[in-house]
Design a protein around this nucleic acid. Sequence first.
DNA 1: GACCTGCTGCGGCGTG
Length: 742
Amino acid sequence: MTPSSSTPASNFWQLHPQVQQWIWAQQWPALREIQELAIPPILAGDRDVIVTAATAQGKTEAAFLPICSRLVDQPHTGANTGVQVIGIGPLKALINDQNRRLSALGDSLGITVCPWHGDIDSGRKKRFLQQPSGVLLITPESLEALFVLRGSQLPQLFASLAYIVIDEMHSFIGLERGRQLQSLMHRVDGLVERRIPRIGLSATLGDMSLAADFLRPGAGEAVQLVQSFAKGDPLKLQLRGYRQAAEDSDSIDQEAGPGPEAIAIADHLFAQLRGDKNLVFINSRQQVEQYADILRQLATDHGVPNEFLPHHGSLSKGLRAEAETALKGDAPITVICTMTLEMGIDVGAVQSIAQIGSPSSVASTRQRLGRSGRRPGEPAVLRVYVTVPAMTPFTSPVDALYPDLVQGMAILNLLLEGWYEPPIVGQLHLSTLIHQLLSQIAQQGGMRAEQSWRHFCEQGPFAEVDQTLFAKLLRCLGDRDLIQQSQDGLLLLGLTGERLVNHYSFYTAFSTTEEYRLTTAGQSLGTLPTTMPILPEMGLIFAGRRWLVESVDSDQQVIEVSPAQMDGQAPSFGGSSAFVHDRIRQTMLAIYRGTDIPAYLEAKAQQLLQEARTHFADCGLDQGYLVPEEEQVLLFPWRGSLVMNTLLVLLLDNGLKASLEGVALKVKGVSPEELQAALQALLPLGPANPLRLAGTVRNKRSEKYDWVLSEELLCHNYAARFFDAQATWQTLLELLGKDPRI
DNA sequence: GACCTGCTGCGGCGTG
């Protein structure tokens, strides 16, 4: 908002004169709508606020212009006032980026901005603690470390705290890390004995009331919502279809290598993206490596410099920095990545986004698209490349429906509608409660059982845990020697608990697997999970290059490689699939039933959609939900991961040989009539008892401290996370209300 | 067939 274009009514004039001057100096044509709207509620400094607007609308500034206005007005701003704002970010790279942007503003106002995470050197941290003031930009893990290691200093450090800002809030909601963050904010409020206003920032919140409940558990209705409906950049979408080549019976050995369709996709990328800046998102690290390898090979074949670099979570910091720096430079570059470049990291102006394989959520697709279209007047460009199985023979009717193609379409359709997945709520997060209990005991030196239940459950974010469940949890902690009780009833850390808390791996709420470090000539390339068999003399594709494995040191967990032009495979990094929401599957069903041909489908994809619709009708799925095969029946409920998982366990519990087959459930050894009768028999029982159902599942451990839980508590935790008995019963009612098949 | 995130203190060594 420059003086010439600001109206007398503009909120711009409420900002501190020094902040106004800084804005003029930036020569912005005007404040964005979201920046105008956010000024009054944040300046008030007495309430929680959610700021939501499309990507690249300047949400960070929307929060910090009024925040800094208020800080400048405070009489004691300057050295030694203590931290006035805690800014929490999900990624180190994001914190570095925010630090760069906010330091410029802070410098002109005399407000210190300090980034704090694992890569910041300890000298800088020490200096900050000697003269704390201004804005502290920090990860949840580093804040956790402050609680454990400097618990006694914190009341003073945070005495002048005025705001907590959460950047990319959607990336926390519903996860262990999100519950940890809620707990940490609650513990900050407890330290200073005040309610510190919380400011949440995000572009992709699917459900505002759930987001508000996340920001202030139990009091979400009082959170003020600041929302801009200003359109982001115009969109240009294309979905391209590719068919896998028919399996050549002589080439079974080559199954791990890229097929001709991957080569065709790479050819298209090579032709379209070279000479400009782009991001290519792929759903697995293994495929990132495969495509980086093919594209490097193409550059060699054409005798041109390679413009394609890989970027994923298992690459070393140095190699990732190389790709990020290249993106910020002037030369053309395309980075092939997983979700590592999905969020706010400023990668400069990117011409287009490519996505290989259907994405699994609308929200992450929106985030990825937000990386593009930052050049004035240019649209955001997204090309989605989907592969369908070879026509003859289909190994399963599920394949013939081309579910990847139709899921990709469903996600694009929902994206165009402006819908995003709401967070999954109602989880117990017992693993994270254990984590926070240990941390709080370490911070205070000891704690009473009654007091800790009140703090974490009655008044804090673990509201789903009642006193009975909490008492059982404490007993599990005692049994494993994580805690012990002193004679006067104080909870103290046990020997095992001490050992856990005193190791640096304690600060994360999520679990990680052990990994080998991959090095060449003393330089780190990245990491591989220890589950992957690696032998000397093997060829390996990593960091988009080809290597020969020289040695494997299983004590030090180091693999030494040397450059070599030889055949090799991109490694498998493991991992589990993402949750798919009900609405995506329901939209897929509508697409199969419809006749509409969206404009974003390229010619080949249009033809494949017609085939998918024909196969859909040929199976009888336009009328029913069961497809009989030899010796087995496929069940298509068209629901998301939670219902599919519940239904699967429910069928298994009823003695049926069920398994998950992509978007369907496969049941062996029954006729359609028998399966329908079995489903019919479930109806009078009402929604299944999730606790009892969880008892039939064997591998229930998935979170960091699940190993501490008794079978009973593990069932509680699993049922809350992986089952939706109510929605599953609803699904059965709807399915059985109609003809199962022709 | 399958995502990602994050982490302290201190000893040892080399350099200015």
